[in-house]
Design a protein around this nucleic acid. Sequence first.
RNA 1: GGGCCUGUAGCUCAAUUGGUUAGAGCAGAGCGCUCAUAACGCUUUGGUUGGGGGUUCGAGUCCCUCCGGGCCUACCA
Length: 571
Amino acid sequence: MARILITSALPYINGIKHLGNLVGSQLPADLYARYMRVRGHEVMFICATDEHGTPAEIAAAKAGQPVAEYCAEMYGVQAELARGFGLSFDHFGRSSSARNHALTQHFAKRLGEAGLIEQVSEKQVYSHTDGRFLPDRYIEGTCPNCGYERARGDQCENCTMQLTPLELIEPRSTISGATDLEVRETHHLHLRQSKLRDTLDQWIDSQRGWPVLTTSIAKKWLHDGDGLQDRGITRDLDWGVRVQFDGAPWGGMEGKVFYVWFDAPIEYIAATAEWADAHSKDEAAWRRWWRTDEGAEDVRYVQFMGKDNVPFHTLSFPATLIGSGEPWKMVDYIKSFNYLNYDGGQFSTSLGRGVFMDQALEILPGDYWRWWLLSHAPENSDAEFTWENFQASVNKDLADVLGNLVSRVTKFCRSKFGEAVPEGGATGPREAQLVENITRRLRAYETHMEAMEVRKSATELRALWVLGNEYLQEAAPWSSFKTDPEQAAAQIRLALNLIRFYAVISQPFIPAASARIMADLGCDDWSWPEDVAAALALLPAGHGFTVPEVLFAKISDDQRLDWESRFAGSR
RNA sequence: GGGCCUGUAGCUCAAUUGGUUAGAGCAGAGCGCUCAUAACGCUUUGGUUGGGGGUUCGAGUCCCUCCGGGCCUACCA
């Protein structure tokens, strides 16, 4: 039994996430967590909301709420949606927690003492109307190069020219449109990660088998131009972790908070501490996952994230951990994903284009989405959601191949033998062949799941379901029942066990459907089928069951067309 | 501009890292079955692997070039 620490990139607090966000981190992380648990490993699966930063403050202002209140409310919404999708976090924390405040300050202090933080004087744009400093991208104006009127303060989207807000002609705030902007001198702390460049470089070189996407992004940042640059880790905001605190090895940081990207990854650790608090456990309970000197040396730590998160997880966060000089557990494997597009374009929050988590659950149960998203996960390149493809996959894979199999077996049994596993008869060569075929595919499925090959796992799982239909067709118990009812009984006994077997192995993908099958079969033995023959004889003759309701309803053409137009966006 | 990823059947994807005749699912065609959610099974039609050139006994895979799609480029998170 191994100990596996799994973290999913933290969803940002300022609204409901779309399906692309879900499939890029939380969902595959959940798949892996569920699989590892059912294989008997000790799993700690952590996620949290990422609550600090300018966008949160602005979203709260828009909602007319104090930011703390807004975040608390949105946290509730996101936690509820996570439940709807069956995300099995051991803890879903908040980066605004007291635990994270304390840990973030702890790391900053250690880094400061190690000489890895320096104070830098910078010029920042302040908006009187908005009453805040504005990040570059919140400033808009006319591009000095091409004359484009909506160039952002960091780059002109029209001519790709790199800009600073000071270069814009007629700059204005994108929040309020205010033009009473002023350049102010302000002091910030920078993390001197350039000093750790070689260390980070060697650390990444020492990792084996990481996705190309992960290492290539990290290498780019390490070696491009002048190499790894230092980063500002503080901001002039109200909402966040205070930079000035007891024991802080620097002064003059009153009124400032840490940059959200500094405290967000630390929340992985803090959320584990929150988990311990929530379960009335002691400090050692969470530290054994994170401190290699306190029990974490045998932990395998896997992170899941979209490609946009890679630099922070391969460089900044490791720099924080290494720079602390303390034995914190470093990540062992980073599984990164490309983007999911929506019907020929990108998901767009502002245009209301695409399907968002709340809308998805209003339409269909979580399992439908889980299956499609995971079986089409953007592992090698960007993937695309289309309603036609979604409809085809759900109807064919879930309703026909799996759902109908459950239905035909249980209903046949009910009509010929009653609602209990029939007795009598014996299995023969055909059943032995089935066991052999299933075993071979099951081992392939296990290999892909271990390797986090999400799509390949889904393909293999579906192929396992198909074996059930093939067997039934060949055995044809509806025929054998007429000539040799005992043989039909043995065949159906096996088929009922096959359904239970499918519920167990499919659980990481479609947990709710699996749970319903198991409940209707009156079985709660979820143990993994190491021995397929034994697993297919688990439900004994005489064991009662009830015929399940339709497991997966088909998506009609009318529904598809309706949803297609509903989610096309406002334009 | 620079870097990285990507282009394989009508659609969505594979191809043991250079090795026989490029494979699956869906869609299409034909046959079978009648237990089942008009479901299932079997058979089958689809490919000059984006174009061109090169290396090699051998290229979807490596190199060059052109074309298309995408991402990143450090203050959005």
